[in-house]
């Protein structure tokens, strides 16, 4: 996706005669400065997580991860992701079908509203649910009377996670489906396919990598969310602490090795996310390019 300069430019640059590149020394200096910046802000902190996690030896590392509270935190994080990600997937597919395949009034507004959670501070996202479902909230007294606890319990954590991950799948799918147009879907319709068949057999194969891309990012955020979840969680160890909250609890206890051990799991999740993202990104670019070629040369469309 991000290829370098054209080959011709590169070879001319190598001979040092290219009028549109910089002298070799300046190039080396710029590369070194960029790498130094990335090293200071990205690489060192990442390495520090693993170094700190293993600073007291492998035994402490394993003990920290097999601690019952850590296990409960891992289970809760997985549970939250298992609920929040599919919800997001269903919403994202519905939203992108309505927005990309149809023309209606207020479409731009709807798209902006879907993106809104990205511009809300995570802490405020959590606060919103406390206002709605907390003891002093709108539904607080009713929930209390019926013995249902949402805030400071698992449902609140799920809701806050759904809020912060809300736009992920939709914002990946909408541009992709818009670029692909709806000619193939209309052809399928004329041939008698039902709506679900059209989606399953025509649309889904065209957008599957875009969909996966959105799901990967959504999952990373769902498992790693801190601010929003921190506000709605009751911070009860072993019960309402997700992995990031467990990291905070251990850190505040000055139990550094254990905190970094749990953090290292989340860092590994981030690395896996980046790797999958790289693969999906290339496939999405291919999907987009295919859509563009098909539209540019209708004759070759089968």
């Amino acid at each position: 996706m991000y290829s370098g300069a054209p080959v011709a430019g590169r070879t001319r640059a190598a001979r040092g005669t290219d009028p549109v590149t910089e002298p070799r020394v300046i190039r080396a200096l710029l590369i070194a400065t960029a790498l130094l910046f990335l090293g200071l802000f990205l690489a060192l902190p990442l390495v520090a997580v693993f170094a700190q996690a293993l600073s007291k030896g492998v035994g402490v590392y394993v003990a920290a991860l097999s601690d019952p509270d850590a296990q409960a935190a891992i289970r809760l994080t997985l549970t939250v992701a298992v609920i929040a990600v599919p919800l997001n997937l269903v919403f994202g597919v519905c939203a992108s079908w309505a927005i990309a395949k149809f023309e209606f009034r207020g479409k731009a507004l709807l798209t902006t509203l879907i993106d809104l959670p990205f511009s809300v501070s995570p802490v405020i996202s959590g606060l919103l649910y406390v206002l709605l479902f907390g003891a002093q909230g709108w539904f607080g007294p009713w929930l209390d009377a019926h013995g249902i606890q949402i805030v400071f319990a698992v449902p609140g954590i799920v809701l806050a996670t759904v809020f912060v991950t809300f736009p992920f799948v939709a914002r990946e799918l909408i541009p992709l489906m818009q670029a692909q147009g709806s000619d193939e879907e209309e052809a399928a319709r004329v041939l008698g396919a039902s709506g679900w068949q059209i989606f399953r057999r025509v649309t889904l194969p065209n957008v599957k990598w875009g969909l996966l891309y959105g799901v990967i990012l959504c999952n990373a955020r769902a498992m790693g969310e801190f601010g929003a979840v921190s506000v709605v969680s009751g911070h009860i160890r072993g019960r309402t602490d997700t992995m990031p909250l467990h990291v905070e609890a251990l850190y505040n206890d000055y139990n550094m090795a254990a905190a970094f051990a749990v953090a290292s799991l989340l860092a590994m999740l981030a690395l896996v996310t980046l790797a999958l993202k790289l693969i999906a990104e290339r496939r999405v670019a291919a999907e987009l390019a295919a859509a563009r070629d098909a539209r540019a040369l209708p004759a070759t469309q089968s």
């Binding site: 902190p45 990442l46 520090a48 997580v49 700190q52 995570p122 990373a220 498992m223 790693g224 969310e225 801190f226 601010g227 992995m243 990031p244 909250l245 990291v247 905070e248 850190y251 905190a259 970094f260 953090a263 989340l266 860092a267 999740l269 981030a270 690395l271 996310t273 980046l274 993202k277």
Partner: peptide
């Protein structure tokens, strides 16, 4: 991709 809490302590 990195959870903010992990970034913070790192």
């Amino acid at each position: 991709a990195l959870p903010t809490a992990v970034a913070g302590i790192a």
